[in-house]
Design a binder for these strands. Structure first.
Lengths: 265, 265
DNA sequence: AACTAAGTTTCACTATTTGGAACTTACCTA
DNA sequence: TAGGTAAGTTCCAAATAGTGAAACTTAGTT
């Protein structure tokens, strides 16, 4: 029943409503939300009022519709800078993309999903907001599998449990067993493939971004089509990607875990 | 005492803490937050736990530091698409930027501040996340004044009250009276200037983006330096900007207030 | 071993949240 | 225009969740 379940306090409930508004992806009326809400009318109403008052949700009184508030855009700017490796990785992504001329994705794990935090596409200019922030499945994407393969055992198990194993293509892995086996192979190989597992004709190679301590910071992938590349030809890019990944990790570590700055003297 | 005051419920308090974490702009320890917090130790602690559990804040147990969570990046992606005019305006910004070759800003009002939601810079590639999400003052920026000038009287008064009137440069307007007078001039002129009021050497022209009903959707500005332009030469771009603005408004209206779609038949 | 600071848990007390039901618009329909 | 229906808003007693001083546990000094 409680699919996305959480033993929520008030804050959790409010954030659930926020997610719900986000899920519509367009301004919604109260009744639309009520229909798909697990909360009673009065409760939902009050939660929405709270969110509006807080600027997390905007309410257009003329139309009577709710939408996500701009306060989120401001928070996200900070979140992206603080919580993601994207600002650190930016110059390296630029360089990599320029040199190999293929689509590059930078991703992080968000619970049991892949969150894309940056992207480069050789052909068109950077499209950050339009691409960053998107989510995808872990079990059938290159970055997802790469990050999962090097995750710590508890987190890994939890995430493996939480996948949906929807069969997107003929090659999609559709069982926990198959995924576990694949993760083993990925670990010994040192990187992950996506062999048309999510979309037909789309293949990629992916590497995890690891701290010196072996903690997964994120994932980096290069994507192409079967028309232009084979897995083998993509694999040739791995050494190049490896050096990008280690430089990102190095920078990220010194940024996120800076040496204690002893008084400036 | 309660500067950012709100008669907050639990949700408000939690969001205050979220803002506080955001304000640091780097991973922070519990004691850093406690120092600058209005909440007692145990309360702050529990609020943080809630936020972490909800994925709005991430906690790195190794270092014992809190940072904004990636869930925000995901929400922001939706917020930017849903709540901002940026996705609609994107192609028009691209075109305008290309044709006039100067820095272009797209902004919206967020409470009493200017929130930049997109930017184009002819010289260097687009830097969305790094620029979008930034905030600035209303009373000394072109977009701010333009949006304020066409705001409805109640909102306008409220915002005028809430400005800080910090004197950034010799030209900064530093009183409500001066600002009101300037807004009158802007209204009759039809667009706003920023005559080095925020930063020395930086000037701009700005237009509001208005619905047919006269409601302020946002603002558009073209920025340059005194070295390259005078206010008069920037003013020559206004007709071009006017057409951009009206096209954005048109698209935004049909997107945000779509005709009721009568069953497809 | 004794001290100190940082972080975490407890628990009696309270303020907030809850949601069924009643109420108010606003808009159809006959 | 009355009568009906659906959408949105408010009420209030009961139930729940939040509060924070203080006690406690670590971890790091001296």
């Amino acid at each position: 029943m409680s699919e996305r379940g959480n033993e929520a306090g008030t804050v959790g409930k409010a954030l659930n409503v926020l997610d719900q508004v986000a899920a519509f992806g367009r301004p919604v009326r109260f009744s639309d939300l009520l229909e798909s809400s697990e909360y009673p009318k009065a409760t939902l109403y009050r939660l929405l009022q709270t969110l509006v008052q807080q600027g997390m949700v905007s309410f257009e009184s003329e139309r009577g519709v709710y939408a996500l508030g701009v306060r989120l855009v401001r928070l996200a700017h900070q979140a992206w800078q603080t919580a993601s490796i994207a600002p650190v990785a930016r110059p390296y992504l630029d360089a990599l993309s320029l040199e190999i001329g293929e689509t590059v994705h930078l991703a992080q794990l968000d619970h049991a999903q892949v969150l894309y935090v940056d992207k480069r596409n050789a052909a068109v200019p950077v499209e950050m907001y339009s691409q960053a922030g998107k989510v995808g499945p872990v079990y059938c994407t290159g970055v997802g599998k790469a990050m999962l393969a090097w995750s710590r055992i508890e987190a890994q198990s939890r995430i493996i449990e939480q996948q949906s194993y929807h069969k997107f293509t003929d090659n999609t892995l559709t069982s926990r067993r198959a995924l576990r086996a694949e993760l083993d192979i990925i670990c010994s190989r040192g990187f992950a493939y996506d062999n048309e597992e999510h979309e037909p004709g789309i293949i990629c190679v992916a590497l995890p971004i690891l701290t010196q301590g072996g903690h997964v910071l994120g994932g980096l992938s290069v994507t192409s089509t079967t028309a232009r590349h084979s897995l083998e030809s993509l694999a040739k890019l791995v050494p190049h990607m490896k050096s990008t990944v280690s430089r990102i990790a190095e920078d990220a570590e010194s940024w996120r875990f800076p040496e204690q700055i002893k008084e400036h003297a």
